[in-house]
């Protein structure tokens, strides 16, 4: 999915902002469904998708890594069987979208550094690619997405210069941008992800069906007036 809009003369752009975390299983499913909706959208060439940072658990201690199943059991107070039942459902729906989640290998981490790298990639027009790569790394490949060497490797895979990735990870660049995205989410009333905001006029919450997202694109596009920026 393109990160920049290509506008046909006489037609207007449609901006879709997606608040998402790289450790969010519903976000990856929502991403695939949005991609399918855009493919079917009559004005697909006018759509610009922008990925926004949303840490599901900003209180997760930095540097602490734990198996996702253990983390979910601790968060929900559920048994191992209950946690597996919950994740089995999302795994099945992900498989319908061609995504093979592996929660046995997934590692729960603080995602601030991952989002900072995505913002760096965004300055290079690679934000969507970086978000996709990190979702895949966490949910499918069992990568540890707070490890700086891992993040550097994944960033370079999508085209971010290695030196830039290392520089950002060594400091605190883009931390304010990540916080800014989170603050905007709160201002918009967003408490869960994925959340899709269309032209700052319409909101769609959750991993909705493709048809719903397509209808939302159509509704937003046909709305009169200048799109909000």
């Amino acid at each position: 999915m393109r990160g920049r809009a290509l506008r046909v003369s006489g037609e207007r752009p449609l901006r879709v902002e997606v608040w998402s975390d790289v450790v969010c299983p519903w976000c990856y499913i929502g991403k695939r469904r949005l991609e399918k909706a855009v493919e079917r959208f009559e004005h697909a060439e006018n759509v610009e998708v922008v990925w926004r940072s949303f840490q599901l658990d900003p209180s997760h201690a930095k540097g602490v890594r734990m198996p996702v199943y253990d983390m979910l059991a601790a968060k929900t107070g559920g048994s191992a069987e209950q946690v597996r039942a919950m994740t089995d459902r999302v795994k099945a729906l992900a498989a319908d979208e061609g995504l093979t989640y592996d929660f046995d290998r997934a590692v729960a981490v603080n995602t601030l550094d991952a989002h900072r790298v995505i913002h760096l990639a965004g300055t290079l027009g690679l934000g969507a690619e970086a978000h996709e790569r990190l979702l895949r790394a966490h949910l499918i490949e069992g990568e540890t997405v707070d490890d700086h060497e891992t993040l550097t490797r994944l960033a370079t895979e999508v085209g971010v210069p290695e030196d830039d990735a290392r520089r950002v990870l060594a400091g605190d660049e883009y931390a304010r941008d990540v916080e800014g995205d989170f603050s905007e989410a709160r201002a918009l009333g967003i408490t869960g992800v994925p959340f899709f905001v269309l032209d700052r006029a319409y909101g769609v919450s959750g991993a909705q069906p493709v048809d719903t997202l397509l209808a939302a694109l159509t509704t937003a596009y046909e709305r009169e007036g200048t799109p909000a920026r």
Partner: peptide
């Protein structure tokens, strides 16, 4: 924001999905 779509679509929130 005008909210479109189902109210109960699955989301991740508060560290849980």
């Amino acid at each position: 924001l005008v909210i479109l779509g189902a109210e109960d679509a699955p989301v991740c929130a508060d560290g849980r999905c």
